[in-house]
Simulated assay, not measured.
Amino acid sequence: MLVFRASKDRGAASFGWLNSKHTFSFGRYYDPTQMGFSALRVINDDEVAPAAGFDTHGHQDMEIISYVLQGEIAHKDSAGNIKTLPAGEFQLMSAGKGIYHSEFNASDSNNLKFLQIWIQPNQFGGAPGYQQKAFERQNGLNLIISPDGRDGSLQMKQNAFLHQLILPQGEQLALPVQADRRYYLHLITGSLQLGEQRLQPGDGIKVAQLSSLSAEALEGPVEALWFDLP
């Protein structure tokens, strides 16, 4: 099963300082057919004006991933973390029993673009956690997040994996899929053929009940996020 989600069909939010596209229901955008997929609950494609951002707010029992596409995030939280997250780096904040944080555009002159992703955990309560790392961008699938922190990846409280997919134009890759797992692909750059579906930036696709699947970079380089979900 492949279920396509076109970029143009995502929910939209605009507050002057923030323009956002919502893959799944979030905030004022509600679509009962788009409430997440498996443990994946949120993919927000955010663009934040200079020196603006999200004031201090709280989360509980959620795995929150930020991936910066352009600019830098100034992060501060109630666990004492004061960090700057530059373009190309991944951040994973485990909310646990509760955490408060703020996220601001660290620049006074340039817009910030980043993906905000929420994954529902399979462990609840416990102390909040913070992880941040830059990964090498190698062709193929690059492991970013796993349940056990294998191979230097960030560790998440869920039986799920996040890979960064990098493909030069014209290159093909057989994606590792199992019929009893679910997968989601979000395309960031390039043009990608996934099975019989062609994707453009901002598009996504749900994958389930498949034992084989191939990807081809039609226009590149392709960058995408590949979620392996329970």
Score class of each variant (00 low, 15 high):
2 L>I: 13
8 K>D: 10
13 A>W: 07
16 G>W: 04
22 H>R: 02
24 F>W: 05
27 G>Y: 15
30 Y>G: 06
30 Y>A: 04
35 M>Q: 15
44 N>M: 07
44 N>K: 02
51 A>S: 15
51 A>D: 08
54 F>K: 08
54 F>T: 00
56 T>K: 12
66 S>N: 06
70 Q>D: 14
73 I>Y: 02
73 I>F: 04
75 H>A: 08
86 P>G: 12
87 A>L: 11
94 S>C: 07
98 G>R: 12
98 G>L: 15
100 Y>N: 14
102 S>M: 07
104 F>V: 05
113 K>W: 00
120 Q>R: 15
121 P>M: 01
122 N>R: 04
123 Q>A: 04
123 Q>K: 09
125 G>W: 12
125 G>Y: 14
127 A>I: 10
130 Y>R: 04
130 Y>D: 05
130 Y>M: 00
132 Q>R: 07
133 K>A: 03
133 K>I: 09
134 A>W: 00
134 A>F: 02
136 E>A: 12
137 R>F: 15
144 I>E: 09
145 I>R: 08
147 P>I: 08
147 P>D: 01
151 D>S: 14
152 G>T: 08
152 G>F: 12
153 S>V: 07
154 L>Q: 15
155 Q>W: 00
158 Q>F: 09
159 N>A: 15
160 A>F: 00
161 F>N: 11
161 F>T: 09
163 H>S: 11
163 H>V: 03
165 L>T: 05
166 I>W: 05
167 L>I: 01
168 P>H: 13
170 G>T: 10
171 E>S: 15
176 P>E: 06
180 D>G: 06
181 R>T: 01
186 H>L: 08
188 I>N: 07
190 G>H: 08
191 S>A: 12
194 L>G: 00
198 R>Q: 12
198 R>H: 03
201 P>W: 14
204 G>D: 11
208 A>Q: 15
209 Q>N: 11
209 Q>P: 00
210 L>R: 01
216 E>P: 00
220 G>R: 13
229 L>F: 13
